[in-house]
Design a protein around this nucleic acid. Sequence first.
DNA 1: CTTTCTTG
DNA 2: CAAGAAAGA
Length: 350
Amino acid sequence: MGVNLRELIPPEARREVELRALSGYVLALDAYNMLYQFLTAIRQPDGTPLMDREGRVTSHLSGLFYRTINLVEEGVKPVYVFDGKPPEMKSREVEERLRRKAEAEARYRRAVEAGAVEEARKYAMMSARLTSEMVEESKELLDAMGIPWVQAPAEGEAQAAYMARKGDAWATGSQDYDSLLFGSPRLVRNLAITGRRKLPGKDQYIEIKPEIIELEVLLRKLGITREQLIVLGVLLGTDYNPGGVRGYGPKTALRLVKSLVDPMKVLASVPRGEYDPDYLRKVYEYFLNPPVNDNYNIEFRKPDRDKVKEILVERHDFNPERVERAFERLAKAYREKLRSRQSRLDMWFG
DNA sequence: CTTTCTTG
DNA sequence: CAAGAAAGA
């Protein structure tokens, strides 16, 4: 879910770009966020995901494989960052998610029984769960493709933001805004190829392009500091204090944060009894100083055709011709865009 | 979601 | 060729 920042980000702080504009940049991508999106989106009209002959779900592998190839073909250098153990502070949110999934599962079964196809799809998507097997196999596929990935000790968004802050990545990539609170200098959203997205509940589609949100620009437009942005997030709600503080929407929260420059004063001003200011302070400090891993290396290796085929074709019944064709695109992109240290200029002039 | 097929 | 529908596993 992530922090409730959406409505607070002014349109002027969002910059729409073509995927090509990101050519040559390392992007630290929130793997969980992306795999989860594939798992929910890649389904038949009735909600059934893609599955191999043994009934194992493969939607996430299909999405990861084809999207990664599209990215590197455009010169983008993806590094996938995987979540570690969620912090204790997240347990309430994690439990709530589990509860919602169970609820959606029941509704899904009821919809299937009733023959309500569209409804079945909706609840199938809501009940989708990323298993540890799916995560491990995604890492295995990335290894076979020669694409680097990094294991975060805790939150992937925190690790990705750290890598971007250090300059090892140009930006973080996720649909969520948390990495901005964790201090990422740039966030890229909507990292898809197909610029088409279905409007929820309607049969309409709108064009979606990647968008860049620059932290410095965002802070300037809002007239606040990063510390104040974190407090703003806490007022509006994060995974660690879901729901935020009652009575605060985007406007009131921004006004309060700006009127009391000292972040601690804002957190101390919440109604006692209902909220624990000490806990909120802990959340604030977590965003400022999360656990991260410093021992990672971002190396793009030659893709291994046999391994890719073993995983996708032999193990999971992907179509051999399709995989072969896509692999060829990957191999070519590796030679032309990833191998050796290519500068952004090389990327533009070929 | 991405690719491939179908259609105007 | 572009847009929409269908398939992918």
